[in-house]
Deep mutational scan, measured.
Amino acid sequence: GSPGIQSFLPPGWEMRIAPNGRPFFIDHNTKTTTWEDPRLK
């Protein structure tokens, strides 16, 4: 199987799917959430 997208996120980050189907990202380091992919910064 191919590695999940989770493995490509920075340490402490998690990806979830919102009720509307959009992915969002949780930064457990700062306890914040964002719509922006942290890998694109």
Score class of each variant (00 low, 15 high):
residue 30 T to M: 06
residue 15 M to W: 03
residue 27 D to W: 02
residue 37 D to Y: 03
residue 36 E to H: 13
residue 40 L to D: 12
residue 35 W to A: 04
residue 9 L to Q: 01
residue 37 D to N: 01
residue 19 P to C: 15
residue 27 D to A: 01
residue 39 R to I: 04
residue 5 I to A: 14
residue 3 P to Y: 06
residue 10 P to Q: 03
residue 22 R to S: 08
residue 24 F to L: 12
residue 40 L to V: 12
residue 28 H to A: 06
residue 30 T to R: 07
residue 4 G to M: 07
residue 16 R to P: 00
residue 30 T to V: 03
residue 26 I to V: 10
residue 27 D to Q: 03
residue 23 P to E: 11
residue 33 T to H: 09
residue 31 K to G: 15
residue 28 H to K: 06
residue 28 H to M: 09
residue 13 W to H: 00
residue 5 I to E: 15
residue 22 R to L: 13
residue 6 Q to I: 13
residue 36 E to D: 13
residue 21 G to F: 02
residue 18 A to Q: 05
residue 41 K to F: 11
residue 9 L to H: 01
residue 27 D to Y: 04
residue 3 P to E: 15
residue 2 S to Q: 13
residue 31 K to V: 06
residue 3 P to V: 13
residue 11 P to S: 08
residue 33 T to F: 12
residue 15 M to I: 09
residue 35 W to I: 05
residue 36 E to F: 12
residue 25 F to D: 01
residue 9 L to P: 01
residue 6 Q to G: 14
residue 41 K to Y: 10
residue 40 L to H: 09
residue 33 T to A: 12
residue 21 G to R: 03
residue 16 R to H: 08
residue 5 I to K: 14
residue 32 T to V: 09
residue 11 P to A: 10
residue 16 R to D: 04
residue 23 P to D: 07
residue 20 N to H: 05
residue 17 I to H: 08
residue 41 K to L: 13
residue 33 T to E: 08
residue 11 P to W: 06
residue 27 D to E: 04
residue 10 P to N: 03
residue 29 N to V: 11
residue 28 H to D: 05
residue 31 K to Q: 13
residue 20 N to Y: 01
residue 11 P to D: 11
residue 27 D to V: 01
residue 13 W to M: 01
residue 38 P to H: 01
residue 2 S to H: 12
residue 8 F to Y: 13
residue 41 K to H: 14
residue 18 A to D: 12
residue 38 P to Y: 00
residue 5 I to T: 14
residue 38 P to W: 00
residue 3 P to R: 10
residue 21 G to K: 06
residue 25 F to Q: 00
residue 13 W to F: 05
residue 39 R to S: 07
residue 22 R to W: 11
residue 1 G to M: 11
residue 13 W to V: 03
residue 20 N to Q: 02
residue 27 D to N: 11
residue 32 T to N: 08
residue 20 N to P: 02
residue 36 E to Y: 12
residue 36 E to P: 01
residue 7 S to Q: 13
residue 6 Q to H: 12
residue 27 D to G: 00
residue 7 S to E: 15
residue 25 F to P: 03
residue 22 R to N: 09
residue 27 D to K: 01
residue 26 I to M: 06
residue 28 H to Y: 09
residue 25 F to N: 00
residue 24 F to P: 03
residue 40 L to N: 12
residue 20 N to K: 02
residue 33 T to Y: 12
residue 32 T to S: 09
residue 27 D to T: 00
residue 37 D to V: 01
residue 13 W to R: 00
residue 15 M to D: 00
residue 40 L to T: 12
residue 8 F to W: 14
residue 14 E to F: 03
residue 11 P to C: 15
residue 37 D to S: 02
residue 33 T to V: 15
residue 10 P to R: 05
residue 34 T to K: 03
residue 12 G to S: 03
residue 5 I to D: 14
residue 39 R to K: 03
residue 24 F to N: 06
residue 18 A to K: 04
residue 22 R to F: 11
residue 30 T to N: 10
residue 12 G to N: 08
residue 19 P to W: 07
residue 22 R to Y: 11
residue 41 K to A: 15
residue 26 I to N: 01
residue 8 F to G: 15
residue 1 G to V: 14
residue 9 L to E: 01
residue 2 S to Y: 09
residue 21 G to H: 05
residue 34 T to Q: 10
residue 20 N to W: 04
residue 22 R to K: 14
residue 7 S to Y: 09
residue 8 F to Q: 15
residue 35 W to G: 03
residue 11 P to T: 07
residue 39 R to N: 07
residue 27 D to M: 01
residue 32 T to Q: 09
residue 17 I to R: 08
residue 11 P to Y: 08
residue 19 P to Q: 10
residue 35 W to M: 06
residue 40 L to A: 11
residue 20 N to C: 12
residue 4 G to F: 04
residue 25 F to L: 01
residue 15 M to R: 06
residue 2 S to N: 14
residue 6 Q to A: 15
residue 34 T to L: 04
residue 26 I to F: 09
residue 14 E to R: 01
residue 16 R to E: 05
residue 12 G to Q: 04
residue 4 G to W: 01
residue 7 S to K: 11
residue 2 S to G: 14
residue 8 F to S: 15
residue 27 D to R: 00
residue 37 D to E: 05
residue 41 K to D: 12
residue 25 F to R: 00
residue 17 I to D: 02
residue 35 W to K: 04
residue 1 G to P: 13
residue 18 A to I: 02
residue 21 G to D: 04
residue 16 R to S: 07
residue 14 E to I: 05
residue 6 Q to F: 02
residue 14 E to Q: 05
residue 17 I to A: 04
residue 8 F to M: 09
residue 15 M to K: 06
residue 2 S to W: 07
residue 38 P to N: 00
residue 12 G to D: 03
residue 1 G to H: 13
residue 25 F to S: 00
residue 13 W to Y: 04
residue 16 R to V: 12
residue 16 R to L: 10
residue 19 P to R: 12
residue 32 T to P: 00
residue 8 F to V: 14
residue 40 L to W: 11
residue 37 D to M: 02
residue 37 D to F: 03
residue 33 T to N: 07
residue 1 G to T: 14
residue 4 G to H: 12
residue 1 G to W: 13
residue 11 P to M: 08
residue 5 I to H: 13
residue 18 A to H: 09
residue 23 P to N: 08
residue 32 T to H: 08
residue 11 P to E: 11
residue 26 I to R: 02
residue 40 L to P: 09
residue 26 I to P: 02
residue 8 F to E: 15
residue 31 K to P: 04
residue 12 G to E: 03
residue 32 T to K: 10
residue 31 K to I: 05
residue 20 N to F: 02
residue 16 R to Q: 10
residue 15 M to G: 02
residue 15 M to E: 07
residue 18 A to M: 10
residue 1 G to K: 13
residue 23 P to M: 10
residue 14 E to P: 00
residue 39 R to V: 05
residue 36 E to Q: 11
residue 38 P to A: 01
residue 29 N to H: 08
residue 29 N to F: 09
residue 10 P to L: 06
residue 26 I to H: 05
residue 19 P to M: 08
residue 16 R to K: 11
residue 13 W to L: 01
residue 32 T to I: 09
residue 8 F to A: 15
residue 14 E to H: 03
residue 31 K to T: 07
residue 32 T to W: 06
residue 12 G to P: 04
residue 10 P to H: 03
residue 4 G to P: 14
residue 25 F to V: 00
residue 6 Q to P: 14
residue 8 F to P: 15
residue 36 E to R: 10
residue 5 I to N: 14
residue 13 W to P: 00
residue 17 I to E: 05
residue 12 G to W: 04
residue 36 E to W: 12
residue 38 P to Q: 02
residue 41 K to T: 15
residue 11 P to H: 08
residue 34 T to R: 04
residue 36 E to C: 15
residue 5 I to V: 12
residue 15 M to Y: 04
residue 39 R to H: 05
residue 5 I to F: 12
residue 26 I to A: 02
residue 28 H to E: 06
residue 21 G to L: 03
residue 3 P to S: 12
residue 29 N to I: 10
residue 2 S to A: 13
residue 31 K to F: 07
residue 17 I to M: 10
residue 27 D to F: 04
residue 4 G to A: 12
residue 23 P to W: 13
residue 37 D to R: 02
residue 24 F to R: 07
residue 22 R to Q: 14
residue 2 S to K: 13
residue 3 P to M: 12
residue 28 H to L: 10
residue 30 T to G: 08
residue 17 I to N: 05
residue 22 R to V: 12
residue 36 E to V: 10
residue 12 G to V: 01
residue 23 P to R: 10
residue 19 P to H: 09
residue 26 I to W: 05
residue 41 K to I: 15
residue 2 S to F: 10
residue 24 F to Q: 12
residue 12 G to I: 01
residue 26 I to Q: 03
residue 33 T to Q: 10
residue 9 L to D: 01
residue 1 G to A: 13
residue 11 P to L: 08
residue 25 F to I: 00
residue 15 M to F: 04
residue 35 W to S: 06
residue 18 A to E: 06
residue 30 T to D: 04
residue 34 T to P: 01
residue 29 N to Q: 07
residue 37 D to W: 04
residue 4 G to N: 14
residue 35 W to D: 06
residue 13 W to N: 00
residue 23 P to T: 08
residue 19 P to D: 08
residue 24 F to A: 07
residue 39 R to D: 02
residue 35 W to L: 08
residue 34 T to V: 06
residue 5 I to Y: 14
residue 13 W to E: 00
residue 24 F to S: 07
residue 12 G to F: 05
residue 17 I to L: 11
residue 27 D to L: 01
residue 35 W to T: 06
residue 13 W to Q: 00
residue 35 W to N: 06
residue 16 R to G: 08
residue 22 R to E: 14
residue 10 P to W: 05
residue 8 F to H: 15
residue 22 R to T: 11
residue 26 I to L: 06
residue 36 E to G: 05
residue 13 W to A: 00
residue 39 R to C: 08
residue 2 S to R: 13
residue 10 P to T: 02
residue 17 I to F: 12
residue 3 P to K: 14
residue 4 G to V: 11
residue 14 E to Y: 03
residue 6 Q to N: 15
residue 41 K to N: 13
residue 18 A to G: 11
residue 38 P to I: 03
residue 27 D to P: 00
residue 29 N to Y: 09
residue 38 P to T: 01
residue 13 W to I: 03
residue 19 P to Y: 07
residue 4 G to Q: 13
residue 17 I to S: 05
residue 9 L to N: 01
residue 21 G to P: 11
residue 8 F to R: 10
residue 40 L to M: 11
residue 35 W to R: 04
residue 10 P to K: 06
residue 4 G to D: 15
residue 32 T to D: 05
residue 35 W to E: 06
residue 29 N to A: 09
residue 29 N to S: 08
residue 5 I to M: 13
residue 2 S to L: 13
residue 3 P to G: 12
residue 21 G to W: 00
residue 7 S to W: 07
residue 33 T to L: 13
residue 24 F to Y: 15
residue 14 E to D: 05
residue 31 K to N: 15
residue 26 I to T: 06
residue 14 E to V: 06
residue 6 Q to Y: 01
residue 13 W to D: 00
residue 16 R to N: 05
residue 15 M to L: 07
residue 11 P to F: 08
residue 1 G to Y: 12
residue 33 T to R: 11
